[in-house]
Design a binder for these strands. Structure first.
Length: 467
RNA sequence: GGCGUGGUACCCAAGUGGCUUAAGGGGAAAGUCUGCAAAACUUUUAUUCAUCAGUUCGAAUCUGAUCCACGCCUCCA
């Protein structure tokens, strides 16, 4: 039985899909005006784990992720600047170039991190009609009002508005950090459609029944998810920061428009912090996957790091912790390779085998407890009551959820080393056989200086890249 | 001002009333192996869960207080 923590009820609930055996899921994707940082990817990895967990449980999953390639405001107020337009201006490129570029980088990082792509990435700019139609629907149903800068959603007309985030709207009014527009009837009201400024030509703007403008930043997810998954679907997820504003607004506008329940399970991934502070694009306090790669870490090292913590707990990023993940991942691959070697194999205790499998499944199904799942993996791979073959079978089976590319773990063999190094290693082997240990040790050191370690075996050696 | 989260070994991090006198990884130490190393394998590494008081037959897990750190109420994964 798969249990998931539903933000709507703040409890662990058994997952029951609307349609038996099938799951329809939507996750909020990136806004492509800048690089996605490793904190963003914590959420995308969490969503990937969720997808893999559902598949591991035998569900047929229809999964959609959006790419926000249309500019929104830096704040919800009419004073805000559009991030995409701003980014384009700074870089002296068109907005279309900017979003294309960051989308490509995002897709590359997704691939590097072994994140399963959705069935479809939906781009906000390609669903403009659906968005306009939904705003129209809300207008027809009387949930909107017009101000000088746009069409707004009247949250007071939707009594369930605070339910997802458990908002205390009265409390919000007292100490809010920012003044809200005089024209807004309530602090929680939000824009559905914004008018283009009269004095400035935007690069991205569309015609609408209300005039030339652009969509409010919440409407795209409602419009696209509904268009592809229907009015009512199973799972919607995103970063925890989306809970109080974006998802709250999305839920309100969707249910107001369709009159149906929007989503059954809302799941949110916690933040990755830089030291004690959060990592955020807006403050520039962030690092990208490429930064990690440049520093000699593999994307899988980072994925391993993420799997060491539960998705609903804040995680502090530090290079010390990443180093420990890197070692752990390397040791794991090394263990896999050891098990692959055709040594004499012992018999396997089938009961232990089943026990490992069920322990793993239980961990995964307990709201995706990856730290425990990882401990089961280690336990399985080191379990002496199991044959090497069975241990490998378990590891590869578990990897369907973990996504650590364990099956691609290859011994860094002689072939991967430069000829020069191989020649030296051969020479060392000869010296060793001739009991010329001084010479052998000297060669070993020289090979080490070239970045390789010699691992001796009974009648030969293997080379491994050292770092 | 309101709402909320967390403090577990040297580091990361599970566990949220008895199965746990606290998983797993990293690190460190010892042993096996080895010409010596490395790798591999084995073993060891928290009588204790921020502090104090209480509830209970029983608490890291519940309650209260205190200290500390952090997030949200602006855009943000």
């Amino acid at each position: 039985m798969l249990k998931l923590f539903n933000s709507l009820t703040r409890t662990l609930e058994e997952f029951v899909p609307i349609e038996p055996g099938k799951v329809r899921m939507y996750c909020c994707g990136p806004t492509v005006y800048n690089f996605q940082h490793i904190g963003n990817f914590r959420t995308f990895v969490f969503e990937d784990i969720l997808l893999r967990t559902l598949k591991y449980n035998g569900f047929d999953v229809k999964y959609i992720m959006n790419i926000t390639d249309v500019g929104h405001l830096t704040s919800d107020e009419d004073t805000g600047e559009d991030k995409v337009e701003k980014s384009a201006k700074e870089q002296g490129r068109s907005v279309w170039d900017v979003t294309k570029f960051y989308t490509e980088v995002f897709l590359r990082d997704v691939e590097l991190l072994n994140i399963t792509p959705p069935e479809m990435y939906t781009k906000a700019t390609e669903y403009m009609n659906e968005q306009i139609a939904m705003v129209k629907c809300l207008e027809d149903r009387g949930f909107t009002y017009r101000t000088s800068d746009g069409i707004y959603f009247d949250t007071a007309k939707f009594p369930d508005y605070p339910k997802l985030a458990r908002l205390d709207i009265e409390g919000m009014k007292e100490g809010a950090r920012i003044e809200f527009s005089e024209e807004k009837r309530s602090i929680t009201d939000f824009a559905l459609w914004k008018f283009s400024p009269k004095d400035e030509k935007r690069q991205m703007e569309w015609d609408s029944p209300w005039g030339v403008g652009f969509p409010g930043w919440h409407i795209e997810c409602s419009a696209m998810s509904t268009a592809l998954l229907g009015n009512h679907f199973d799972i919607h997820c995103g970063g925890i920061d989306h809970l109080p504003v974006h998802h709250t607004n999305e839920l309100a506008q969707s249910e107001a428009c369709t009159g149906e329940k929007y989503v059954n399970y809302w799941l949110h991934g916690e933040f990755l912090n830089m030291g004690d502070e959060k990592m955020a694009k807006s403050t520039g306090n962030f690092i990208t996957l490429q930064t990690l790669i440049d520093k000699g870490y593999s994307p899988m090292d980072y994925r391993y790091f993420l799997l060491m913590a539960h998705y609903r707990k804040k995680l502090k990023f530090s290079f010390e912790a990443l180093d420990s993940a890197k070692s752990g991942y390397r040791n794991l691959l090394s263990k896999i390779n050891t098990l692959r070697k055709p040594k004499q194999d012992s018999a396997s205790d089938k009961q232990v085998y089943e026990e490992m499998k069920s322990k793993f499944l239980n961990a995964v199904n307990e709201d995706m407890n990856m730290p425990v799942a990882m401990s089961v993996l280690w336990e399985a791979v080191r379990n002496e009551k199991l044959s090497a073959e069975d241990r490998l079978k378990l590891a590869f089976d578990f990897d369907r959820v973990l996504g650590l590319r364990l099956d691609q773990a290859l011994p860094e063999q002689v072939e991967s080393a430069p000829d020069e190094v191989v020649r030296m290693a051969d020479e060392r082997l000869e010296a060793k056989r001739a009991k010329d240990f001084a010479r052998a040790d000297k060669l070993r050191q020289e090979i080490k200086d070239l970045g390789f370690e010699v691992l001796d075996s009974k009648d030969g050696y293997t080379l491994r890249k050292s770092d």
